[in-house]
């Protein structure tokens, strides 16, 4: 492999994992943008999505073993998106909405409670060991020079780009999107204009969680094994991605996810795998210290 091919291979790997980070980061950033809450349970929704995907694959294998793989993939993604979205709705209703007027930090504790609950619920249902995710589609590879492109990578990119474009449409072209942006600007004024702020916030959680669910399936299919602990580290990194891009900013989450993916891939390839996570967090700290609002974040006056 020439140095140039090696570089492109890493670029591709970074693009793949980065797209998954971006999908999850969107949920962090949407919720933060609208109610300035860091949803610490978001990584667990991603994890539950991965397991929902696993369950769907197993179920399809039992009920309808001969199903067209493309239909199987779509069904699996749909199951994880619906399941994740529903979970997001329930979490918002049970753990966040009752405390919205309360001290800001108490929401942090309920989020941690939700994380404990989800991790242990998944562990009880699926066991504590790593679970193997059977491939839905035949492993297909293309060779371009010595660079290998897998079908899965292409699918991840296509699904991520499709979903992000769809989200962008929702936010900027629909009534719901307008209501979301209005609520983010000023919840009180939005309420006075007849917007049901509660419904808008619930919808935001639902959409963000559905994206995380899809991210979970893509993650499981890419790495073939999942564990109930995965939500923590991947969630943390997706969060880093959201901050890197400027939390609250949707294109920022995408940019942050991809950048973090690249940084990790190149860090692992050119430095060492062990220090991969240090790369991610060092970047996080440096960005916050040098440009606290993230790359695409607006510069808000430091002092009121």
């Amino acid at each position: 492999m020439t140095p140039g091919d090696f570089f492109f291979q890493q670029l591709l790997n970074g693009l793949t994992i980065g797209s998954i980070y971006a999908l999850i980061a969107l949920g962090y950033t949407m919720v933060y943008g609208i109610i300035q809450l860091i949803n610490f349970a978001h990584g667990e929704i991603f994890m539950v999505g991965a397991y929902l995907g696993l369950a769907a694959i197993l179920l399809i294998g039992k009920v309808h073993p001969g199903l067209n793989p493309t239909a199987g993939l779509l069904l699996t993604l749909l199951a994880a998106a619906v399941g994740g979205g529903f979970l997001g709705l329930v979490i918002e209703r049970v753990a966040y909405r009752p405390l919205r007027q309360g001290p800001k930090l108490s929401v942090l504790i309920t989020a941690i409670g939700v994380s404990f609950f989800l991790q242990n619920a998944v562990m009880l249902v699926f066991g504590a060991q790593d679970r193997y995710v059977p491939p839905l589609l035949q492993v297909h590879r293309w060779q371009i020079g010595s660079v290998t492109v897998t079908l899965m990578q292409v699918i991840i990119l296509a699904v991520s780009i499709g979903l992000m474009a769809g989200l962008q449409r929702i936010v900027y072209r629909t009534g719901l999107g307008r209501a979301m942006r209005a609520t983010a600007q000023d919840p009180l004024a939005a309420r006075l204009m007849g917007i049901s702020v509660d419904r808008v916030i619930a919808a935001t959680f639902c959409i963000g969680s559905a994206l995380a669910g899809v991210g979970g399936v893509l993650f499981g299919l890419t790495y073939s094994t999942i564990n109930f602990h995965d939500g923590y580290l991947i969630g943390l990194k997706a969060f880093t991605a959201a901050v890197l891009g400027g939390i609250g900013n949707i294109p920022g989450a995408m940019l942050g996810g991809l950048l973090l993916g690249f940084l990790e891939a190149f860090g692992a390839a050119y430095l060492s795998t062990q220090w991969k996570n240090v790369v991610a967090f060092t970047v996080l700290v440096l960005v916050l210290l040098l440009r606290p609002r993230g790359l695409l974040g607006e510069r808000v006056a430091e002092r009121a």
Binding site: S106, G113, F116
Partner: peptide
């Protein structure tokens, strides 16, 4: 046994809903 951390999670949510300011807030 196996349900304890699950219940622990529910307990944290319940406690905060009842006393958002903490036990001795």
């Amino acid at each position: 046994s196996t349900y304890r951390m699950l219940l622990f999670g529910i307990g944290m949510i319940g406690l905060m809903r009842l006393r958002p300011q903490g036990l001795l807030g």
